[in-house]
Simulated assay, not measured.
Amino acid sequence: MFEDPYTEHVLLTPGPTPIHPRAQQALMRPMLGHMDPEIFALNTEIQADLRAMYGTTDTTFTALLAGTGSLGMEAGFANLVESGDEVLVCANGSFGRRMADMATRYGANVRLVTAPLGEAIDPDDVAAQMNGVQMVAVVHGETSTGVLNPVPQIAQIARQHGALLTVDAVTTAGMEPFHMAEWGVDYAYTGAQKCLSAPPGLAPVAISDRALARYHARRTPTPLWYCDFEGLRDYWERHTYHHTVPVNLHYALHAALRAALDEGMLNRKARVQHVGQAIQTALAPLGFTPYVQRPEDRLPTVLALRLPDGFDDAGVRRALRERHISVTGGLGATAGLIWRLGLMGETARPAPYRALMNALEDLLGVQGLTARFDAALEPVPV
C-alpha cells in the first residue's frame, strides 16, 4: 500500500535532497515549448549562473543534460574519449569505479589509481602513471565513502602532462567554492538533486575550451548522439532544435541555482561544516566515529560515520523509515559498517537532524542527543 504522497518525509540521504522552496514554486509555472524565446532567455541565465557556480571563464560552455549525474559522467567519456586512448581513473569508491567502467565501454585503455576505502587518492600515485595519458578522471567527493579527493593537486599534475581532467563534482559543486578555471578542470558535472536541491533529472555540465578542442579533433563521431557536444551547442547557443528538454525542470533548476548563488558558496560551506560538527558532537557519546581518519580527507557534504559495535544498522534504519526519516547505510564493503548522512542543499539544516536526534532518543532509549545537538549549534555562524 502506498503512503499518502503528501506525508512529510525527512531525507537525510546523500541524494536526492529536499527540493528548495523556490524550486518547488517554480515547478508550478505553466508549460512553455522548449523552443520558446522565453525558455532560451531562461537558459541563458542558467548558463551564466553555472559559470559562477563552477568558477569558469566567461566563455566556458555550460549546459544542462536531460538526465541525472550519471549521464553527466557518461557524456564526458562519450565526447572526449576514443578507442585506444589512455585514460587514468582515480578509483577509491563506487563512483570512481563507475568512471572506469564507462571509460572502458568507450574503448579507453584504463589505468587505475586506487586508495583503500576511506582514504583519499595520493597525487604522487597519479603522477607516477601519467606517461602517455590523455585524460585523468576523478571523483571530487566520493559519495560512497565520504572522502574528499585532492582535485587541485591532481589537476596540476594533469595540466603538466598535457592531459584533460574530468571531475565528478556531484557532492561538491553548488555547496562550496569550485574553481574550474583556476584549478585547470576541463569537464565538470553534477546532478540537480544534490547540492542544489532541485528535482532529479538534470545534469549541469561545464566544458572548457581545451575539452571542446579535443572534441573537434576526434577521428570518429561521438557515439552518444543524445549528448553530443555540438548537438548541445546547437540548442544552447544557436537556438536550433536538437531534442526536447524538460522545461519544468529547467524552471526549478534556475530557481534553486539562483538561491544557492544568492546565499553564497562560502556561506553554504560554513552551514555544512556547522551542522556536520553538531551531528558528530551529538552522536559521539553513543560510539559513532568518523569513518575517514584524516580530517582533511573528509567530505563535508556526506558525513560518513562508523557505527558503534553491536549497532543494529538495518533495524534502526527500518524503524526510522517507519517514522518517515530516511538514513543511508554503506555500499558494498561498508554495508553495516557506516552511515552516510547527507549535508547537501536543504538537508544541511538543523531541523532535519533535530528530527533524527529526537527519533534516536526514543528508539535507542537514550537521552541528551537533541540537547547536545542544539548546544553544538550555538553560536550560529554569521
Score class of each variant (00 low, 15 high):
281 T>I: 11
5 P>E: 05
239 H>K: 15
114 T>G: 09
256 A>L: 05
266 L>P: 00
313 D>C: 13
51 R>L: 07
244 T>N: 13
117 L>R: 09
295 P>W: 09
343 L>G: 02
72 G>F: 07
22 R>T: 14
309 D>A: 15
212 L>N: 00
72 G>S: 11
171 T>P: 00
347 T>A: 15
254 H>C: 10
220 T>C: 00
268 R>I: 08
369 L>E: 12
328 T>H: 14
54 Y>R: 05
147 V>R: 11
306 R>Q: 14
142 E>L: 07
32 L>E: 15
19 I>W: 08
143 T>N: 08
376 A>Y: 03
195 C>P: 00
138 V>A: 12
332 G>H: 06
18 P>E: 06
213 A>Y: 00
323 R>S: 01
24 Q>K: 15
225 W>N: 05
53 M>V: 13
142 E>D: 06
310 G>Q: 13
172 T>A: 07
272 V>S: 12
31 M>H: 14
379 P>V: 08
10 V>H: 08
353 Y>K: 04
182 E>A: 15
308 P>F: 11
41 A>I: 00
323 R>D: 02
161 H>A: 10
186 D>T: 10
44 T>G: 15
116 P>W: 02
378 E>N: 07
114 T>S: 14
5 P>S: 06
229 F>D: 02
75 A>K: 07
239 H>E: 14
62 T>W: 12
161 H>M: 04
125 D>H: 13
318 R>L: 14
297 D>F: 03
139 V>F: 02
339 W>H: 14
